[in-house]
Design a binder for these strands. Structure first.
Lengths: 347, 347
DNA sequence: GTGAAAGCGCTAACAA
DNA sequence: TTGTTAGCGCTTTCAC
């Protein structure tokens, strides 16, 4: 039931004040649950605000209080599965706090990252969570000068502007290499995204080749793609690679989706997995549970990263920050062997 | 190279004004590219702003100008694939405009929708794009009284508060029913999410049963799930359903992911698709291209919906809106038969 | 427990 | 082309 006709001009504190005969100041106090207000006045104010359908103006509030309860979260993409999970972690922690995440997407483009950060900073957020350690000089300067907590996430192979939460992708690649060699595979192919700008994928690849090199092994074939359905690409690239290099006994994919494509192709061909060819991906995407075989993979601690980052920001916005909350966190990804990296030893 | 030490207090227009000896007003004009400013002054201002690393304060700007270039986009989930694609559509259209989308997530909970909308409205955005036509009375009241353009998206089976862009899910369900019957299938099972709150899935289901009913056909078995990996759930539910009802000759899934799970299960069992059993899903998710068979499905025009919604908002924020931009748009989803709904006629 | 005054950093409107 | 003045709607601070 409408008590009044819909207002053309947004309502102000003043309107509520008029409606209930209480000063603006007191109305403000009631609405923010601050300071002491008698129950009677509080009830009158609340009733009036509700009846009018008053929605406070945060713009004015933030300007006056010099506080903005927004946390800028800047990520490369929403299509990647990885990032929505990070956001969930952030949300879980900020859920019952005054802080609110605001998401910006960069499409893996440094210039866009710069623009997005600039726009978000112009709202004077209480903190920034940003993916990756690699940024343009301008971006880094903005982060340094913002005067607010900054958490760089996902990756810990590098030097952060301020705080940092993630995993070492280099090490993840290296450990995967070791796991593969341990099982006796030695003719190894790699498939991944074209990654001039996906630094995490690049570091994994570098760690991987490094890990192989230590055992005197080199990648025998490699292929990169961009765009298109990852599953379809995985199929296609795998077919092509095996035509080119039929002797490969292991395929390492830079993510689970193309890995799954490869898996489906090999199953179609009736190839023995993991006997004849072993497979591994990266990310441990839940989405893929239910495939005919469980792909070997490594999880990237996505949710945990989001949570930890949010906690760091949160800690810095409260009256006296707990000095025990660490600001440089390296998480350890777990390797799942699944059904594609457990070779029955040959001999 | 830093020209100054990092400021502890954020810089103001005043600082730039002082630094270049030009009035605040003129600095403001330069930074907003408004009004006539001589090239000489502009260059001086720009140089000073850049050297200082000045980032304008939108909070103050918006309060003064009574304009906020934000568009609230309220969706149920980011994990659903569907919504990131809608967001992409929105982004594409707003990319080169002053408007900026801000995303809020409701987790399919009406109370959370209410909270999220309230918080977003408190930033006085220029428009709202919100998923669905079903909202709490309070939510609807806020939308009505906000005094800004509101576009309800995804669904057109109902009455919008203001503008609306989507498809008719009821009709989509009905058309799928017809397509299935046309191929001669008649013993039909349904699997979907528990959908007390997913109104689109519910409407599809209703349209579907309605479409069957017209031909005197009834669903023979049904099952609902919630949570977990959709692919795995699809496998499991399909197995269970076929144990229970071995005579089914068609399975309709409320989304492609569980449909894909079902598909994989049937292939494992060596069941002839689409001869013995036909399959269909919904959404036409690109992700799944590359499966052994292409699942019959219907696309939900996700990107287009985002684009159209953004255009409606955009049109209302410009000086004189084009009256020819329609505000109630019903898109037509296309049916893809794929490889799982093309039965060789039996007889 | 309540109210009055001042001002947050910017821009609209007007004056020069 | 440039500058001045007066707020935007709220909160801070201080007085009562």
């Amino acid at each position: 039931m409408q008590l009044t006709t819909p207002p053309k001009r947004p309502l102000t504190l003043r309107d509520v004040s008029d409606a209930c005969g209480v000063s603006e100041m007191t109305v403000s106090r009631v609405l923010r649950k601050r300071g002491d207000v008698s129950d009677a006045t509080r009830d009158r104010v609340l009733a009036a605000a509700k009846a009018l359908g008053y929605v406070p103006n945060q713009i004015a509030g933030s300007l006056a209080s010099q506080r903005v309860n927004l946390v800028a979260v800047i990520i490369p993409s929403l299509g990647n599965m990885v990032f929505p999970e990070v956001l969930n972690g952030v949300n879980q922690v900020l859920e019952d706090t005054p802080l609110q995440p605001v998401v910006g997407v960069t499409d893996y483009l440094p210039e866009k990252e710069e623009r997005v950060l600039y726009e978000m900073l112009s709202w004077r957020p209480s903190g920034v969570i940003i993916a990756g350690l690699e940024h343009s000089e301008a971006t880094r300067a903005m982060l340094r000068n913002a005067g607010i907590p900054v958490v760089e996430i996902m990756d810990t192979d590098g030097k952060p502007v301020d705080a940092m939460v993630g995993i070492s992708h280099r090490r993840a690649g290296r450990e995967m290499a070791q796991a593969i060699l341990r099982e006796g595979y030695e003719r190894i192919g790699f498939m991944g995204t074209k990654m001039p700008l996906d630094h995490r994928a690049r570091k994994r690849f570098e760690g991987f080749t490094e890990g192989l090199a230590k055992a005197g092994v080199e990648i025998e074939d490699r292929a990169f793609y961009s765009g298109g359905s990852a599953l379809a690409k995985g199929r296609e690239m795998t077919r092509e690679m095996l035509e080119r290099s039929p002797d490969l006994d292991f395929l390492y994919y830079s993510n689970d989706m193309i890995g799954a494509g490869g898996l489906l192709h090999l199953l179609d061909e009736g190839i023995d997995i993991p006997g004849q060819i072993g497979l591994a991906g990266f990310n441990n995407v839940e989405l893929l549970q239910g495939l005919p075989r469980q792909l070997a993979t490594m999880d990237a601690c996505r949710n945990e990263i989001g949570q930890a980052a949010a906690r760091i920001i949160l800690n810095q916005t409260i009256p006296d920050p707990d000095p025990d909350v660490p600001t440089q966190i390296t998480l350890t990804p777990t390797l799942s062997l699944g059904d594609t990296l457990r070779r029955r030893r040959q001999g």
